[in-house]
């Protein structure tokens, strides 16, 4: 009997919580469709042969230059602003290599008769707003006006590739630096400190606590330039920390085990190419141009 009551309450709580979470999620006007490959022809304006050819050309281009160019066609924007939607797409797909930001998107909204070239930070130097605008105006839209989407897209993508060719080489993407995460470094640092403290002062917990109480505020003042109340708090924390470390070391008999083993790099942003395709983590700042036909 009590059990069912508890279950009911739990279920109620769960429902309430999930309602809260559902309620706070803003629903965007137009969902960003999933990334299928380099060519995402959701509007179905390209012939299958053209789509395959483009996919191959763009894949080849990425292998040579590491630059990722992605195509998205949608049937309609459903009233969303072209620029907003475009930015949401690249923020989700993240074409371009991490740190190099060498990605670009060609977005075509068929029924709205609008298109946009969205350019990543790394390509803004070559594929400027001006150049993007000319590609749209002089190369793509004349073909679109004739109803020849295949040729317009092929010419447009070719022009984009020609403009950014030589801007990056594949080797650039190997030079990506690994960021040493701040929390990770802090964590390792404290683990080392506590481990050493515990090891040395394992047999005398109170001494350990005293050392901790002295050491922590000194460290706080020197390394973090803290002062006042915070030092007091640190002293207390150091006291407890020293005590715990000593007790733990005593209890386990651990004397020289290090915990700082696997602190390898935080690698991110693989560029795909084998099998599935995914964006490499490029960033965008609204560069590019829009147009219509």
């Amino acid at each position: 009997m009590r059990n069912t009551l508890l279950t009911k309450r739990l279920v109620g709580l769960f429902l309430a919580l999930s309602l809260i979470f559902l309620g706070t999620r803003p629903v965007p006007a137009l969902e960003v469709p999933p990334l299928k490959g380099r060519v995402n022809d959701y509007a179905g304006i390209l012939a299958p042969a053209t789509a395959r050819q483009l996919e191959a050309v763009l894949q080849n281009f990425e292998t040579e230059e590491s630059t990722q160019i992605v195509l998205l066609t949608v049937p309609s924007l459903d009233g969303a602003s072209l620029e907003d939607f475009s930015l949401r797409v690249v923020e989700k797909w993240k074409p371009g290599q991490n740190k190099l930001d060498n990605g670009a998107l060609l977005l075509i909204a068929k029924n709205d008769r609008k298109l946009r070239i969205e350019v990543g930070y790394g390509l803004e130097g070559k594929l400027t707003d001006l150049v993007s605008g000319r590609i749209i105006r002089d190369i793509i839209t004349p073909r679109f006006k004739e109803g020849n989407f295949d040729q317009g897209v092929i010419d447009g993508i070719s022009a984009m590739m020609a403009v950014v060719k030589g801007e990056f080489a594949t080797t650039d993407s190997n030079r990506r630096q690994n960021r040493s995460g701040d929390p990770g470094a802090m964590l390792i640092f404290f683990l080392v400190i506590f481990s050493v403290l515990g090891r040395i002062l394992a047999r005398t917990p109170w001494l350990a606590a005293g050392v901790g109480a002295v050491f922590a505020p000194v460290f706080g003042a020197l390394a973090l330039s803290l002062g006042g109340l915070m030092l007091l708090a640190l002293a207390l924390l150091g006291f407890i920390g020293g005590l715990i470390a000593a007790r733990m070391a005593n209890a386990t008999g651990v004397s020289s085990h290090g915990y700082w083993g696997g602190s390898g790099g935080f690698s991110s942003g693989s560029s795909g190419g084998f099998g599935g395709f995914s964006g490499g983590g490029g960033s965008f700042g609204g560069g590019g141009a829009s147009g219509g036909w």
């Binding site: 620029e83 930015l87 400027t128 707003d129 001006l130 993007s132 605008g133 000319r134 105006r137 965008f284 700042g285 609204g286 560069g287 590019g288 141009a289 829009s290």
Partner: peptide, 12 residues
């Protein structure tokens, strides 16, 4: 084109 691009960048 440049002006539109810049306005868009300001927005972003």
């Amino acid at each position: 084109n440049q002006l539109e691009g810049t306005e868009n960048r300001i927005n972003v």
